[in-house]
Design a protein around this nucleic acid. Structure first.
Lengths: 337, 337
DNA sequence: ATGAAAGCGCTAACAA
DNA sequence: TTGTTAGCGCTTTCAT
């Protein structure tokens, strides 16, 4: 403990072997005599030696670190994906570097640092088509998309089966007898919003309900945008009997606007969302929603990425996860809470 | 682009200089002739050379990476701290590795990997006293606490001025004329809960209102625990006229319980929280709360940590940030929303 | 202003 | 089974 920390050679000297033997011991290689192993281990113990991860990365040419780039780190959905990914990565002795890039330029700079400078072995990109960031996707580098599948290139992805989720949601409202069902979408440049809109249309179509474009308003995932949307229906005097908001936050805004306008939920207006955020059951009334297992998305993405890094081709290259309907009182009197 | 990526030596050969000169150019050193610099830069351009961060770390003995360990990554408060820290780190050309450790064992293992193996240059620990994880804090390593100041050791920290925040909150209720003010705390092993309880008591004391221990219930930050708390007051027939919940989520649970019990808010029961979560203004009624700038906490923590790493002693070693009262309709009819 | 030599702490390939 | 010899790609002396 005099000055610096001990290296593999200090251990070797102490144990009276070559540094290479020490390397063999710390890497659990087989060809070491039990007695040698023991003396090396005791030397390690005495000196308090710990391997230096950087030196290891240097020699092996890989960092044992993955990166996840997300539009931000605070949105509950993104944070959950990241947490799922981080836990899975740690399980395989990898670390996860999560960074936020709010726009394509920040994204480009980040990818350049991360991939160009070889700081990480693989990359997870959340919502690659939220803007034009997909243009800066690296080539020939282990990569997995989350939240959208690749448009043209052959890139692995994990996402919610958005079309089906929206179909099921809309269908729930149809089965309750609604015919005038409004839709509040996310930003239409995002695949997710497009797919959910498709599912909504298919459900209407299968129920022989005509699609009415004036019943669709584009939001931006925020509660405010949901509030504005319902307000604008009300102002136009074209009040729906039900609203399907493409996420819970917007649904919350719809509930708020309904309250302000003295519209009874669910008797005059049924409202539902997607996600099942932690507080959805605390809204007034508790919100019916499509519950998804978001950490699982991150977990599966990591698993896929590790497969790619280890040159095992993943079995499935475009994984679509499902969500299940949770019925609460925002759509039916009898709902749970 | 035949095989591997170019190194500093490939660039040197191409430019007809020594690899050391290339190093000087990419490190912006002064002592390079403009003409030499130009030819090196063009060689870099031609070969598409990018420095290898790992090799750099190896030679310099530092990783340019910081770590942040949090109980989890999804809690809005934690995620906001992390985002603030990440943005600040990137601003100084550092990366932030955020990991979750839900219990002391996981924490110990993580610290061992991160610090023992020299993967990072410094460490931010969120909520070090949430459990006994503080026992595994590394010695002589750049470190900053977030959410609690160090008990005995001389460790830098950034946190909310919890005592004052709670004082101000309680005082708001007192000024509205309340005398029977209940308190719902976080887990009492956390400093934050203790300090907020202190602030509550001081406000009562300064207003000459007797402290009534039966008006205090310990929660766990969850909405459910807030709901349970109010329920238990009601069952005991000792209904307060106001509740100060130590965070917004618990306040939300209180609102929910009040609704279920047909207690009018705020006329029969005033409710307030701490945080100003994104959806607080969407609750019914909108929630009065103490608004804090959480990303700033992460930002300041990072700044402090970088000071320590660069051997500049930080000016302030225990930074306490303030919060401001946001009045909404859960405490007063006239409140904003 | 530039170059040569040494080394950061480890792993990999080959020899013994 | 173990040791020897070379690097990994860069920075840091110290010469020139």
């Amino acid at each position: 403990m005099t000055g610096k920390r001990p290296t593999i050679r200090d251990v070797a000297r102490q144990a009276g072997v070559s540094h290479q033997t020490v390397s063999r011991v710390i890497n659990q290689k087989e060809d070491v005599l039990p007695s040698t192993r023991a003396s090396v281990e005791s030397a390690i113990e005495q000196l308090g030696y710990t391997p230096n991860a950087i030196a290891r990365s240097m020699a092996r040419g890989q960092t044992h670190t993955l990166a996840c780039i997300s539009p931000n780190l605070t949105d509950f959905t993104f944070a959950s994906v990241i947490e799922g990914a981080e836990v899975e990565a740690r399980k395989h002795d990898y670390f996860l570097l999560s960074s936020s890039a709010s726009d394509p330029n920040a994204f480009r700079a980040l990818v350049n640092e991360l991939v160009g400078h070889r700081r990480v072995d693989g990359l997870i990109v959340i919502n690659p088509y939220a803007d034009s960031r997909y243009e800066f996707i690296p080539q020939n580098f282990p990569l997995v998309f989350v939240g959208a599948s690749a448009h043209e290139k052959d890139i692995c992805s994990v996402s919610l089966d958005d079309e089906k989720v929206a179909f099921d949601a809309t269908n729930h409202l149809i089965l309750l007898g609604h015919k005038k069902i409004a839709l509040v979408t996310g930003p239409m440049e995002e695949d997710c919003s497009k797919d959910r809109t498709e599912g909504y249309r298919r459900a209407l179509s299968e129920a022989k309900i005509a699609f009415d474009p004036t019943m669709v308003i584009e939001g931006d995932w925020s509660a405010t945008s949901g509030q504005t949307a319902l307000l604008s229906f009300i102002e136009q005097g074209r009040i729906p009997t039900a609203v399907f908001a493409q996420n819970d936050r917007m649904a919350m805004g719809v509930l708020r606007a309904a309250r302000d306008a003295n519209l009874q939920v669910p008797s005059q207006l049924a409202v539902m969302g997607v996600d099942d955020m932690p507080l959805s059951s605390y809204f007034d009334p508790p919100l019916t929603t499509m519950q998804q297992d978001i950490p699982l998305i991150g977990q599966e993405a990591t698993r896929m990425l590790l497969d790619i890094i280890q040159k095992k081709n993943p079995a499935v290259r475009e994984l679509k996860l499902s969500a299940k309907l949770v019925t609460r009182r925002s759509t039916t009197k009898k709902g749970g809470d």
